[in-house]
Simulated scan of single mutants.
Amino acid sequence: MKHFFARSIKKFTNRVSPALLAVILAAIISGILLFVPPINGLADNGDFYRSILSNGIYRLHTSYSQYSDYVIPKFGIMQYFNENQVSVLSSQSIFIQIALFLNKLFYSRTIFDIRFMGLVYYLFYLGGIYLLTKALVHPFRKISSYVLGLLIVFIFADSAYTLYFNSFFAEPGMLICMLYLCAAIISLARDVYQKKWTMISLFFVSTVLLITNKQQNAPLALSFIVVAVGLMFLPKFKARKLAVGLGITVVMLAGIGIYESIGSEIVGANSFQTFSHGVLLETGDPTKKIEKGGVDGQFALMRNENYYAKAYTTLDPSSKYVKKHLIDKTGFG
């Protein structure tokens, strides 16, 4: 019996690597959740319009409320000229356009099934799981390697992450890009592949896609530039330093570009929320605190207020008065 189990385990490890095992388990767990009825996903909290309208998708008139508590499985595909400009610049549009193409090819040219969005993320996600697991366990196929593969599935196949796939939120792209980023860096550090070009290219492509996925990610460019500088010190890599330097420049330009694309309304909302929910809350005497910063002490009355107020507010956050006397006098610092 002991020899039988030993032979069985050996045959299994010869045919199924830890990375492949992780992909199979993640595919089953996430696939059932995303594609087997009843469909699971996340509901629209009002943010979907930022990504769907500029990509030619719109909300259908259904029995669902405007901002439903349930996932919306079907959307309409515009059959006319799309006059909606891009409200938020984001690499998320790449994933949406791929999903739209597949939807029109295999399903419908007028109705968009949210599962095609989930399918696009799902396929990229499984690739990330494979590369990350392989990078962490290479070159071993020990019991500990399979345990690590199971741990990766336990963490990254959690529905807290994968439910986002069946939605128009930008978070799935961030998760997937981080999987590829980490896989690329770890692979380079552990010398998993003989040719380093593939992983270096994957690192820079994933970094740019991550930074441009959400405008809030712009400051991440600084962090990843520091990581990228480390690629300069890879052994036997002197002739390729120029290419790495070019990649670093592209990452920096991506960060600057996505930051500059932020609309004035979004900047105003973020600045106001930072002020009312940050600066004013983190002090015992908010009036004195803001007066030292050159802001009229009366704005302390706006403590804990939202830019988009549900009821009455002390002052209209979007008014010219607030912009002149508050927003223009506060900065990132």
Rank of each mutant, 00 (worst) to 15 (best):
Ala6Gln: 09
Arg7Ser: 14
Pro18Gln: 08
Pro37Arg: 14
Phe48Val: 05
Tyr49Glu: 07
Arg50Asp: 10
Asn55Lys: 13
Asp69Arg: 11
Asn82Thr: 14
Leu100Gln: 12
Asn103Lys: 00
Ile111Tyr: 08
Arg115Ser: 00
Arg115Asp: 02
Tyr121Met: 03
Ile129Cys: 07
Lys142Glu: 15
Ile143Trp: 12
Gly149Ala: 14
Leu150Met: 13
Leu150Gln: 09
Ile155Ser: 08
Ala157Thr: 07
Asp158Gln: 14
Ser159His: 15
Ser159Gly: 12
Leu163Gly: 12
Gly173Tyr: 04
Leu179Asp: 06
Cys182Asn: 02
Ile185Glu: 00
Gln194Ile: 13
Lys196Leu: 07
Met199Arg: 03
Ile200Arg: 09
Val208Ala: 08
Ile211Asp: 05
Ala218His: 04
Ala218Trp: 14
Pro219Leu: 03
Ser223His: 08
Val227Cys: 09
Phe233Ala: 05
Gly245Tyr: 14
Ile248Pro: 02
Ala254Lys: 05
Gly255Pro: 08
Gly257Ser: 13
Ser261Arg: 01
Ile266Thr: 15
Ile266Val: 10
Val267Ala: 13
Phe272Gln: 06
Gly293Leu: 10
Asp296Thr: 13
Phe299Asn: 00
Tyr307Ser: 04
Ala309Tyr: 12
Ala311Gly: 15
Tyr312Phe: 14
Leu315Glu: 06
Pro317Phe: 02
Lys324Gly: 15
Asp328His: 02
